[in-house]
């Protein structure tokens, strides 16, 4: 008898991704795919892809997708979820998309408590355009538009979206996770599953921020980049549950 410990998720299309070696997008896509399969939602789910490296997410995940303009995924997802209230709807947005150009849209979608889930990929840099500074870039971090390192006097300071959005009453569940090592990867999957589960209960907005590595634009090996997420990024962006109204209800 043969037991399958792990095989490629059926929630992924049988295609190769365009992502760089060691990019966490591939890992996070997998986690979403696995959760969609486990929850039997592949047939009905609708994802919204951003502008950025994951613009082609709909080519990789085996569910329906809508490609949004840069930063507008929360508005697009609002439109979808409002007309398809019984479908799982999720956005998949990077940090330039969500924390910069789309900051307004995510704030108001959260404030309205829109019943979709945001998967927010924070890798502290603009990946697709070639490594420019993001709102989430760490102080001192070198990017192509902060070549001497991010200077708080010139460039401002990192934006903590999970904490900021958790102050809004429309946020039902918000957790920051990472896929940078095995225990954290398992937690990340549990967070995505919880967010999707709570979404289907219609209790408010659900949000999972995933600290991710961009080895190419960070100029690190994939293993070093993953280690840096845990050692350095998570100091600025602490992991953990930021808000969970289902937990608060319990005495």
């Amino acid at each position: 008898m043969t037991q399958i410990i792990y095989q490629r998720s059926k929630g992924l299309k049988d295609v190769e991704t365009h992502y760089c070696p060691g990019c966490h997008h591939g890992i996070i896509h997998k986690l979403i795919a696995e959760v969609l399969v486990e929850m039997d939602l592949l047939d009905t789910a609708v994802g919204v892809s951003p502008v950025g490296c994951s613009v082609l997410a709909g080519n990789y995940l085996d569910c329906d997708f809508v490609e949004a303009a840069h930063g507008r995924a929360p508005a697009v997802a609002t439109g979808i979820k409002r007309v398809l209230p019984n479908h799982l709807v999720f956005t998949y947005q990077g940090d330039g998309d969500l924390a910069s150009i789309g900051a307004g849209e995510i704030v108001h979608a959260t404030a309205r408590g829109e019943h979709f889930t945001t998967i927010f990929i924070n890798n502290a840099i603009y990946g697709m355009t070639g490594g420019q500074m993001a709102p989430t870039t760490l102080l001192g971090q070198k990017t192509t538009t902060s070549q001497s390192g991010r200077d708080p006097l010139l460039h401002g300071r990192p934006v903590r979206m999970a904490e900021m959005l958790s102050t809004l009453d429309g946020m039902a569940y918000c957790e920051r996770v990472t896929a940078a090592n095995m225990p954290e990867l398992n937690k990340a999957k549990r967070a995505i599953k919880k967010a999707f589960t709570l979404q289907m209960q219609g209790i408010g907005h659900t949000f999972v921020e995933v600290l991710s590595a961009c080895p190419t634009n960070w100029g690190m090996s994939p293993a070093d980049a993953s280690a840096w997420v845990k050692s350095t990024m998570s100091q600025v962006y602490p992991l953990g549950v930021k808000k969970d109204i289902t937990a608060e209800e319990k005495p």
Partner: peptide
């Protein structure tokens, strides 16, 4: 030891891990 970690972390789903009894 068939823990499956390699397969789970692989961004490109390259790895399958089986356990034959």
């Amino acid at each position: 030891i068939a823990c499956g970690s390699c397969a789970r972390v692989c961004p490109d789903s390259v790895i399958t891990v089986l356990k034959h009894e």
